[in-house]
Amino acid sequence: MGRHEDRQEEFREFAATRGARLFRTALLLTGGDWHAAEDLAQTALGKAYASWGRVRRADNRDAYVRSVLVRAHLSQRRLKSSGERPSAELPEGAYGDGDPALRVALLQALAQLPPKDRAVLVLRYWEDRSVEQTAAELGLRAGTVRNRSMSALARLRELLGGDRESLTTI
């Protein structure tokens, strides 16, 4: 097998093992828009494919590709001014386990936050990144991440209203 084929195979293995997690992150970033999430995850992995020689040497490939994903998300949101809402048509059975009411409530609430606030919350609480790591990935100052995180969380509480109880009893 030549170098080109080796690298193709290496990329495919990476994408197959990390794709699911990346897609879930994309789903949160897009506020539950399945098709936008798929598009976003494909874009991030596609960019990784195009620069695989560089990505494969990264200390943390996952962090590298996640950064691409988040930046692509913010970039796309800048280009598209259309409002975002959870997709009404979801692939049947795609959501598998979990509480559907909670899922809908949380994703709808996330969708109403500004894209950067959503990115802060997703990186901090889904990806479990520290304030400093989140700041580095988003190109923000740590203080800005702290402030955005607090205000976004407060806004999320408002948006969830009566649905909040179901979240806090998980």
Binding site: G19, G93, A94, Y95, D97, R103
Partner: peptide
């Protein structure tokens, strides 16, 4: 809980 069970 919301996305952990998703089947991408």
């Amino acid at each position: 809980e919301a996305v952990g069970g998703v089947r991408p």
